[in-house]
């Protein structure tokens, strides 16, 4: 092709290098998206040839880390899909309220916008004080951003609109202070969030939860890896715990279909009905 694209076979070579030398396993990712991102980075960093790209990844660990962070997708927003957050408010939080202590796992949290959104829901339901949210991602760089709780001020108008559409009644701007071009979210929202690295491909379960949120992560995985990760989630949920996915993701036709029942709405929230 005229744009000098790297072939799918060459991309697999790089993914094998990354696995063998650095332990990150992308070999079970859906190829089309990862190919696109590997090619995008190749062009952005202006490598003259595939051989030089490969040599840099093999020989320069700092660059390999950049590669890992750039080929994973880290696009997120606060209260993404407001109707999903409305369903969490009305159908999930009232159940969580009955527990003495609430444990939530937000897997693949990226820079944390959706984690803070959920913390706001818990705060408004007066549940945050007895909750802990484990927010995990494969990418250490985005977790550091999440810990800071600072998001672009220019996004706040959109986020405020999403918040209101999700049923929020407060003044959204009361949750942050404007600081130059960033909005710094309140300390009390962040103090119940534990940001920590976790690789869904290679790491196991680390606790038992009443709610696992994992949105727009499974779309990047092969069917086989999706099944593995869903089994991990199922094993990490208490009986009657909730699993929440992205708006185009489903438990239908997966390894755990029979164990879960979808809530009676159009949102992607399931309840574990069978151990």
């Amino acid at each position: 092709m005229s744009r000098n694209l790297i072939s799918e076979q060459e991309v697999s070579l790089l993914l094998n290098d990354i696995l063998e030398r650095y332990g990150y396993d992308f070999t079970e990712y859906a190829p089309a998206s990862i190919n696109r991102r590997v090619n995008h980075l190749y062009q952005v960093d202006r490598f003259p040839s595939f051989a030089e790209y490969r040599y840099r990844i093999i020989s320069d660990p700092a660059y390999a880390l950049r590669f890992v962070e750039e080929i994973t997708v880290n696009v997120t927003e606060m209260f993404r899909d407001p109707s999903f957050y409305q369903a969490l408010r009305t159908q999930v939080l009232p159940v969580l309220a009955t527990y003495p202590f609430i444990r939530v796992w937000h897997a693949g949290c990226s820079t944390g916008e959706e984690v803070y959104s959920f913390a706001i829901l818990l705060k408004e339901a007066k549940l945050l004080h007895k909750a802990v949210i484990y927010a995990t991602d494969i990418n250490a760089g985005v977790l550091e951003k999440g810990r800071k709780g600072m998001f672009r001020l220019s996004q706040m108008q959109q986020y405020s609109r999403n918040y209101m559409e999700s049923g929020g009644r407060e003044d959204f701007s009361s949750y942050y202070t404007a600081n130059y071009e960033y909005a710094k979210f309140r300390e009390d929202l962040g103090e119940k969030i534990i940001f920590s690295p976790h690789n869904l491909v290679t790491d196991g379960s680390f606790n038992e939860f009443q709610l696992i949120i994992c949105r727009n992560v499974l779309i990047y995985f092969s069917k086989k890896l999706q099944d593995r990760v869903l089994t991990l989630f199922s094993d990490s949920l208490e009986q009657l715990g909730f699993l929440a996915l992205g708006s185009k993701e489903t438990l239908n036709f997966t390894s755990v279909t029979g164990k879960f029942k979808q809530l009676e709405n159009r949102e992607k929230i399931w309840r574990k009905v069978q151990l």
Partner: peptide
């Protein structure tokens, strides 16, 4: 996106040409 085994894949990465879905992304894939 379209995989070489002729199945669909979805991707929620950055907009391309201010658009998601982007026509370029699907044409190329």
């Amino acid at each position: 996106l379209i995989e070489t085994d002729h199945t669909f894949s979805l991707d929620d990465s950055e907009k391309v040409n201010f658009s998601r879905p982007s026509i370029d992304v699907t044409f190329t894939s």
